[in-house]
Amino acid sequence: MMEKLQLKIRMNEEIAPKIYKIIFLATEIVKKAKAGQFINLYCNKGELLLPRPISICEVNKKTGEITLVYAVVGKGTEIISTMKSGDTIEAIGPLGNGFSVDEEVKQHLIIAGGIGVPPMVELVKFLKGNITVYLGFRCNPILVETIKQYGATVYVATEDGSVGIKGNVMDLINQHNPVAEMIYSCGPKPMLKAVAEWSEKLKIPAQLSLEERMACGIGACLVCTCKTKKEQDWENKRVCKDGPVFWRDEVIWHD
């Protein structure tokens, strides 16, 4: 059985403008959590009802702590950002399927953009072999050093050119022409679509982590769907339960 948990916040700090890192003690979640899954956080403010789904950035099996990195994008995340160390936050998780890691794969390519970068931190820890990471940001890169620290080769692109090359992750791809056996990607939809098209051309399997507005987060309400292929037809799959990570071949990009 799962339950709504009351979790003690250890830290909640702004690490870049409007980007926060929250750490809380969650031994129950830590036992089961894997890269690419997410946690539902509750604001506990009367008129804001729905949980906020935030992807897992890091899991610390030793201390029982979970780290999430989230962007303040609305009233809910704004309330969460005001919570202090020592406060209690309500949460359920881990939710969703997460990335699948194949031990046989030795050449990994991670492509992430903006607030799609955090889930890649936990993923990098579990990949064996060569890991190349392309990260794109508008400005103010996050988590670059953290990802490097786990042994990955990291390249950065920023739209304003303040760090790394000026441009986006596709510019990095065009510059480096990387080889890979498996691609993992998370970020804004146009980026995911570009990654999907590029990887399809090169016939490299790709796992894409999608984002959609959610309500329940556990697969019951059917509001967070994504168009996917089904034999000769198509169907709407649940991003929260069937995803958030989908194989590139499953996803239909046009509406």
């Binding site: 009802l49 507005r213 309400c221 509001v223 509406d255």
Partner: peptide, 20 residues
């Protein structure tokens, strides 16, 4: 039935809209 296109949910004051 395949249902409607996404987004299918909007949070509103003390409630939510759905168009599943």
């Amino acid at each position: 039935w395949k249902g409607n296109a996404s987004p299918r949910v909007a949070e509103t004051f003390g409630g939510m809209l759905n168009s599943v």
